[in-house]
Design a protein around this nucleic acid. Structure first.
Length: 579
RNA sequence: GGCCUCGUAGCUCAUCAGGAUAGAGCGACAGAUUCCUAAUCUGUAGGUAGCAGGUUCGAGUCCUGCCGAGGUCACCA
């Protein structure tokens, strides 16, 4: 258990003692859920700060500072605590006895690569659906953010004891894959030697389909050429989708992403799951035929009033009810998505997380509504939206045009900057903030490039540990960690001790960027300590004249390297030992 | 026009699912760098968190309204 949880538990026990002693009388059983022990923002506030008195004051009808006084007396009895101050509105500021922080290094080092792991997930299933790009072309740069976000989040949840499924939904049922098939068919004719093939407006002009055309030729020779479209379309479509998915999977693998499950929309439709899911909503009176009001403001050119099959999304907080069928009677994308979410709920029995691009933000309410209707619970779905990524090179936008089929592919970017840079940089911003990705900046080897900065801290730490091997300065046995009393050293230890709570918060809030920012801060403290050794040689890690202190410091260096490595692993970024 | 997301230092961004005097980097300014672990380092200045209300012991964080930016808006996916 980490130091913060340990003291939080101690405070909780103390609260209950006060109750037993009759010094405090709660109105009902006290709720300590919001009680936290954390590092105070200001170092002058001590080592640990606890909000217990403020959180509980109302529950026991006391003034926060009065309750704080009682608690402070109880806490003072703890053998690790030197002083407890009451500050501000009722904070308990705890100063620990010397040596308590350094002793944490033992716990960190003995936990090794599982330091920070927890069982807060308690084996609960969580399904993380991400990427889910249409199988109509290779992944482009914009897909990278969601892919990396989703994968890092899945790593985090698994690290916290959740049973995680990584899932990709293949939209292989709509008209876009028919367009893909028609485009691929033209490339097939081209491969068969037909000249003057032009790709008409509305079809996909991308060069990448030439390979599919060639492959179709190899597989079918010219046997498809003169068949009617009703015959060729399903064959070419399925062939092209498979080819696209092979490429997408290969790209994901390059990024270090391995999905557990691929679910096909077409399968859901063909196996009748859409009818089933809509039927189950109908049974609950949530489906009806009706006419939607025209949207306010600018009307679409071809708007006409029409009776449709609708889902009562408004009963679950959506702004309007949502259509389930197109005018030709086939299901809308939304309808199959309802079926898909029903399928995920049944299959996994746990919570769902969807990672979407910001252009789908208008879709969140209806999907949340549908999930509520299906699960009869209101917190089964969390949709995480990833904002746009702007690709730049030395500050100038990298041009892309999907129309012309010359968009920047994920593979292009990865070949330019490498998977590590790609993964880390995509997490250096909250998911709901737009991100600028500048080729020049992210490959720079300097303080300003966070990937480099963090990896370099690991490499530096590794090089110190290598020195130790070479020089054999230390002998076996437990070093006296209490020797680590310099301000820089203690700050670094506190940061290391905070790792478990960072992991926990990142997992529970579904915010993997917290790990990246934590690592940047950790690296900064480590580099800071390194630099302090310049001004003051007594602060260097390896001191020829003091084997005892050297051993203690090497423990600190080892713990730092280990936490950086664990953190980078969660982000699937390598931790180089030399750079 | 409706809905969604965002608005924090000159710039780029954090702020641990409400906590104390809102933090970093860049840039600016001032210094250091014969030795040393230098793909540099130390320090200083810089803020009414878009605006106005509300809830709370306490609000950048939650709620309402307005302003601004982006996204999106039946029969695409």
């Amino acid at each position: 258990m980490d130091i913060f949880s340990r003291f939080a538990d101690f405070v909780t026990v103390s609260v209950h003692q006060l109750i037993e002693d009759g010094q405090v009388t709660p109105l009902q059983a006290v709720n300590t859920e919001k009680l936290v022990v954390e590092l105070p923002r200001e170092e002058s506030h001590g080592d640990l700060a606890c909000n217990a008195a403020m959180v509980l004051a109302k529950q026991v009808s006391m003034a926060p500072r009065e309750l704080a006084g009682l608690l402070a007396d109880k806490l003072a009895a703890n053998e690790d605590i030197a002083v407890v101050d009451i500050a501000g509105p009722g904070f308990l500021n705890i100063t620990l006895k010397p040596g308590i922080w350094p002793a944490e290094l033992n716990a960190i080092l003995s936990a090794g690569s599982v330091y920070g792991q927890s069982d807060i997930g308690n084996g609960q299933a969580v399904n993380v659906e991400f990427v889910s790009a249409n199988p109509t072309g290779p992944l482009h740069a914009a897909h990278a953010r969601g892919a990396i976000f989703g994968d890092a989040l899945a790593n985090l949840l698994a690290f916290c004891g959740f049973q995680v499924t990584r899932e990709y939904y293949i939209n292989d049922a709509g008209s876009q894959v028919d367009t893909l098939a028609r485009s691929a068919f033209l490339r097939y004719r081209e491969a068969l030697g037909e000249e003057r093939i032009t790709i008409p407006e509305g079809l996909y002009p991308g060069e990448y389909l030439k390979d599919v055309g060639e492959a179709l030729k190899t597989r079918y020779q010219d046997s498809l050429r003169n068949q009617p479209e009703v015959v060729t379309l399903p064959i070419v479509r399925s062939f092209a989708i498979d080819a696209m998915m092979d490429g997408i999977k290969a790209d994901l693998r390059e990024l270090g992403i391995e999905m557990d499950v691929f679910t096909s929309e077409r399968d859901l439709v063909e196996q009748g799951h859409v009818d089933e899911a809509i039927g189950s909503l109908r049974d609950r009176g949530l489906v009806y035929r009706g006419v939607l009001a025209a949207p306010k403001g600018q009307l679409p050119d071809d708007w006409e009033e029409r009776e449709q099959l609708l889902f009562r999304a408004t009963e679950f907080g959506d702004d309007t009810d949502r259509p389930l069928q197109k005018s030709d009677g086939s299901w809308t994308y939304f309808a199959s998505d309802v079926a898909y979410h029903a399928d995920k709920l049944n299959r996994t029995g746990g919570a769902l997380i969807n990672v979407w691009g910001a252009d789908h933000s208008g879709y969140v309410k209806r999907m949340t509504a549908a999930t509520q209707a299906l699960s009869e619970q209101n917190d089964m779905l969390d949709v995480k939206l990833c904002q746009l990524v702007t690709l730049l090179d030395k500050g100038k936008p990298v041009k892309m045009s999907k129309r012309a089929g010359t968009f920047v592919t994920l593979r292009d970017v990865m070949e330019t900057v490498g998977a590590d840079v790609m993964r880390f940089i995509m997490l250096t911003r909250r998911n709901d903030q737009a991100l600028e990705f500048d080729y020049a900046k992210v490959t720079e080897k300097s303080r300003e490039n966070p990937v480099f900065y963090v990896q370099y801290a690991h490499a530096r730490a590794s090089s110190v540990l290598r020195q130790e091997d070479i020089r054999g300065l230390t002998e076996q046995g437990q070093p006296d960690l209490a020797l680590l009393s310099d301000m820089h050293e203690v700050r670094l230890i506190k940061q290391l001790a905070s790792w478990p709570s960072v992991v926990r918060t990142a997992a529970l809030t579904h915010e993997p960027h917290r790990v990246a920012f934590y690592l940047i801060d950790l690296a900064a403290l480590f580099h800071g300590l390194w630099n302090a050794g310049r001004d003051n040689p007594a602060l260097r890690f390896i001191l020829e004249s003091d084997a005892g202190l050297t051993r203690a410091r090497l423990n600190l260096v080892a713990a730092t390297a280990q936490v950086i490595k664990t953190g980078l692993n969660l982000l699937s970024v390598r931790s180089p030992e030399e750079m």
